[in-house]
Design a protein around this nucleic acid. Structure first.
Lengths: 348, 348
DNA sequence: TTGTACGCGTTATCAT
DNA sequence: ATGATAACGCGTACAA
């Protein structure tokens, strides 16, 4: 399939316009617009008969207001955008569901932008600047800078960002204490006698370096752990299957690790599958700790020891966005922090 | 948080317009537009100095063409929409990634619409009619009818639908043989001596009745299996945890099932977790068969016996959409069918 | 090589 | 209670 011919795609066939409706109903476009939108100047002012006539004309023609025209005129889209790097991550899909529900109640439509690469992060930014949505939530952008977000804020787009790498610059920022929690988890493993602790990165960690990795690096330095680079699989690949293979590699080492710390719960699951497939047990032979505390961690077999918040709470993010959309937010931006802790279950 | 004040959200602050750029560069808007969009009549016709002047003006002002205005003028959005009912499903998130990549290469931006409820399916439809995107892919819409899609097609929106419930009406339809495959899976269980075969629905199956459920119903009728309604957990809830609880309920029956057929691989995983947590083994005590053959099924412990395509292939869907966008599709719509089969691994 | 002027569909103002 | 009209920002025939 070659280059799509935009000209062809452009030629959307006859969609009825407000003028056609007006003509069919024998009224002015003003009247039609008023019937469709209800409010005009706060005042109700269409006679029942006229309204009925307009309504039937609308029905007969199958009229829908054109969004592009509305957006241009209203200078707003009625849309918000959720920008994420990966949709396979439970946190993101759960957040998406939550936002949809909330936004819907306020009359906003939610769209999702999948970034996935530095290039696409910039593209999403540009789309937003060009009027893709009135507001946006960014989850762990990897390559966007404080300046990027400042520009977004300056043209009046409401933005809330979940990241540990940025500060408020006209946008609201939510951080977490994953670094401290990761350190705590490693210390827990250390106390239980583990010295060869392997690392498997979270998904897309290559594109988005997380503090949990820094915590790992710092811990093995602080405790002078005898861990060579072969124990560190920073990049788990893009899928659970690839993480599985990486974990098998770890377990095939001459001196396999006695514990594995994973940058995500999903990667931890893969590590556990790999352990099983090698004929070893969890946690007796290999202890595994994950990151994120996704709901599935509690029902996994064995229940997963991990770091994370007690349960996902998307409210801070959502409140930040919508209060800002509503103009109820300080121009300089706000900062919040969500607490992460070690949650001990049975995998370690 | 109360009603968001749309008026406030509307008042996007000063975004530079093409006129301001033109003025700053001392040229006409035509020239600016040409510099920005490249082609005008196929002919290149801006002098290097002028172009440079325009470019620096654009840079200085931080100009971006307004998308709403562009869309209105061009009568197209340059966007395609992926409409799904659930993002937690690997099939959907993988498909999303694939579409993004493909669409990006063709200059299209992809957005995702989360439907999730009958109400929202209609809303998505309406958004599309009003110019949300130039084309759309629908995955297993539950309540949209042939007529709904015919209307979409009529106003020139390119649509491809993955479903077994609809026929081409100006849109392209892709079906699969999940019903036959599910029947085959049940027969496989039957042959291995299983008579009390429980059922756990796939996620959102309540909102989207699948043929695999019909196959189950038909099978127990055909083989006169002694299965009461208590063995049938049609609605697994909305999450893996809820499916887990439902599965535990099944296993707590006075005469627990010796096999469980699950309407999705994710539900099958939950069933297996539940089996483990009851102290039973898979497949020795309880055999489990899933549906979908998601990649994780192969690395799960034990590797999951399931039905599905040999591997996910999104090409038919993507080709349908983009060839239609390109005007290369028959107006009446096309039909394709993807083969599903039983894939025997170790969980049954 | 560049500028003028109009139209896209809708909504808000103002007049009737 | 209703209608005429002027924007909104951009793209592009057509004129210069």
């Amino acid at each position: 399939l070659g280059e799509v011919n935009r000209l062809t795609a452009m030629r959307r066939s006859k969609k009825p316009t407000i003028r056609q409706v007006a003509e069919a109903a024998g009224v002015s476009t003003t009247t039609v617009s008023f019937v469709v939108n209800g409010r005009l100047n706060g005042e109700d002012r269409i006679s029942p008969e006229t309204r009925q006539r307009v309504l039937s004309a609308i029905d007969a023609l199958g009229y829908f207001p054109d969004q592009s025209a509305q957006n241009l005129r209203r200078r707003s889209t009625g849309r918000i955008c959720l920008a994420v790097n990966d949709l396979g991550i439970p946190y993101n899909s759960l957040l998406a569901k939550e936002i949809y529900k909330f936004a819907e109640g306020l009359g906003y439509m939610t769209i999702i932008a999948l970034m996935g690469s530095p290039n696409n992060e910039q593209k999403t930014l540009e789309q937003l600047m060009r009027g893709l949505a009135d507001g946006a939530i960014f989850i762990s952008p990897a390559h966007l800078t404080n300046d990027d977000f400042a520009r977004l804020a300056k043209i009046g787009i409401a933005v809330a960002v979940s990241t540990n790498h940025l500060r408020p610059t006209g946008v609201d920022v939510i951080r977490n204490t994953e670094k401290e929690a990761a350190y705590e988890a490693l210390h827990y493993l250390y106390e239980r006698g583990h010295r060869r602790i392997g690392y498997i990165g979270g998904f897309s960690e290559k594109v988005m370096p997380l503090n949990r990795y820094e915590a790992y690096r710092q811990f093995i330095r602080d405790y002078a752990l005898p861990i060579g680079e072969e124990y560190i699989q920073f990049d788990p690949g893009v899928s659970r299957e690839q993480a599985y293979e990486k974990a098998k590699g770890l377990l095939a080492l001459p001196q396999p690790p006695t514990a594995i710390y994973a940058g995500s719960d999903l990667a931890a699951f893969s590590a556990i599958y790999a352990t099983y497939s090698t004929g070893l047990r969890v946690p007796e032979d290999v202890a595994v700790v994950g990151s994120g505390n996704i709901p599935e961690a509690a029902i996994f077999h064995p229940p997963l020891t991990t770091i994370g918040p007690p349960r996902f709470n998307f409210n801070p993010l959502i409140q930040f966005l919508f209060s800002r959309l509503d103009g109820q937010a300080p121009p300089e931006g706000r900062l919040d922090c969500i607490e992460w802790n070690l949650i001990v279950r049975q995998s370690a």
